[in-house]
Amino acid sequence: MTIAEERIERLHQLASEAAAERDTDLAREYVRLARRVAERNRCGLPTEFRRFTCDECDAYLRPGVDARVRTRAGGHVVIRCEHCGATKRYPY
């Protein structure tokens, strides 16, 4: 594991903790930092990180609190951000 991947993982943990304490601005800053680290080092973000962050407003999403999570008959999950209304879909 590279230093960048370790830093991204740590920022993911910090964003999760900040979101749990309802400090959305701090959680957004951690998400932005993690994305910048990934871009600069040309490494991808972990799947769990991508699924629980909003691409539009950089919010860290917690299902049932900041995001609506629904499953659809077509075999995919739909996550809607409560902050900006952006929608994400991925197969299951």
Results as ranks from 00 to 15, higher is better:
G74N: 09
A73S: 13
P63Q: 00
R22A: 15
T2K: 14
R62Q: 08
R80G: 00
R80Q: 13
P46K: 03
R42M: 09
G85I: 12
D58Y: 03
R35K: 15
F49K: 06
L11E: 14
F49G: 08
V78Y: 00
T2I: 11
V78R: 11
T2P: 13
R7W: 03
D25Q: 13
A67V: 06
V37K: 05
R50G: 01
R68G: 04
R32D: 10
R62V: 14
C43P: 01
A19W: 02
E21N: 12
Y90V: 06
N41H: 15
E5L: 15
A27V: 06
E56C: 06
C81V: 05
I3C: 08
F49A: 07
I79H: 00
R50N: 09
E17G: 12
T2M: 13
K88N: 02
R32P: 01
A73P: 07
A67M: 07
L45H: 08
P63M: 05
R28C: 07
A73W: 02
R51K: 12
A27M: 11
G74C: 07
L11Q: 06
D58P: 00
L33C: 07
P46R: 03
L33G: 03
K88W: 01
A67T: 04
P63F: 12
I79R: 01
L61R: 01
P91T: 12
R80N: 02
V65W: 04
L11H: 02
A73F: 02
A38M: 09
E21T: 06
R68P: 00
T24C: 03
R42C: 07
L45Y: 05
